[in-house]
Write a protein that binds this DNA or RNA. Sequence first.
DNA 1: CCAAGATAGTACCGTACGGTACGGTTCTTT
DNA 2: AAAGAACCGTACCGTACGGTACTATCTTGG
Lengths: 214, 214
Amino acid sequence: MSSLSTHPEFSPRQNAVLDSALRLLVDGGERALTTAGVARAANCSKESLYKWFGDRDGILSAMIGYQASKVRTLEERAETLTGDSLRAHLVVFARDLLDVLSGDVSLALNRLAIGQASRDGAQLGQMLQERGRRQIGKRAGGLLDAGRRAGLLRFDNGEEAYGTLYGLIVTDLHLRMLLGEDVKLTQQDFSRRAERAVDAFLDLYGTKRQMAKP
Amino acid sequence: MSSLSTHPEFSPRQNAVLDSALRLLVDGGERALTTAGVARAANCSKESLYKWFGDRDGILSAMIGYQASKVRTLEERAETLTGDSLRAHLVVFARDLLDVLSGDVSLALNRLAIGQASRDGAQLGQMLQERGRRQIGKRAGGLLDAGRRAGLLRFDNGEEAYGTLYGLIVTDLHLRMLLGEDVKLTQQDFSRRAERAVDAFLDLYGTKRQMAKP
DNA sequence: CCAAGATAGTACCGTACGGTACGGTTCTTT
DNA sequence: AAAGAACCGTACCGTACGGTACTATCTTGG
């Protein structure tokens, strides 16, 4: 039970502790994330940990909230869209999405939340969903809406269109990385993957006929 | 360290034990999967567990191998393909894929493997990948190849085409379910989702022009 | 019927971890 | 400067779990 509702957040000192905890989680997985370990890594006492975050679950929640607050999705202004600029914006979005999903902190937190999903009624999973996907989904939604207003895209259901775009970009890559597949290997392919996905998406939802691949 | 290579598998009694263990895992998550718990649920002694499976990790590996051996992907013969029958086959495949991914045992095992991914060098994750996705991917590959031979599909890279199909079908649904989102809710949408995904796929890779949605 | 192996049930051991308590030190406030 | 709060470091407690040992029971083959 942590207060993650409005914007109380935490003090700089507490954020530093959360940073250490994230580092610990990334390096050693959940098994390494013991209260004693966090205290040692952050040079703080266990007593302070329990005072600040309540219990271990409170630390986990705080870690997710803190990380989400760090990864602010930059809201880009996309006016005067042309077919080419829309495609370029979409490709950038796709690359950013892939970069976020393949980040070690993101992967570690997703693993953590998935591991706890059957325990705590998916509290952490809901947080990740809310703070992570909703955020980046909003950015994509804005982009898609702008494309539609410019007459470049055609769709009725924005959520569905975004889902399609997401699926084309990510496919089963996220799951494979979560299962432990070497991330470095897959990262080399990101640019090509982003472009192919966007091309396919424009094939499906674009109003202008895309040029066929040779 | 378990011997999962060829086909030694396990005795009926041991399979029954693995069944109990899977039940336990599905009901209570990994925390509930203690050696004492498995022994109690299966009415066997801990000593037998360690004799048969070596250690706790051996039990986990055996569970994955056992479950994979149960879910045999039926290899369907798809000859004399027409445009309609190809679409029908693809829709069936999509539904089957969604059903498999949303199965409680599948979700529990994926959660388990993901939770261990940072620990054991992704042993379990590799097993799941190998036994799970490769299997169902082969079925899809056969279907796609048949479609291409019949002149109904056009693609150079079968893996890529399958990846696109997978992404269109699943999008981020698998991850959401792994994070704890209510599965029953999403299951209602499976038929529609399967059809939409296949339609989009045929839009991208089909040779005949699909009819536009009204 | 008996010996030998396998297994269930239980008791036991060591360790690791979540959570609490406490003494000593530093920082803040008045 | 004194008083008080915050905090670090450590010690401590209870429990839970992985793994082992032992005994009683059951099965099986001669």
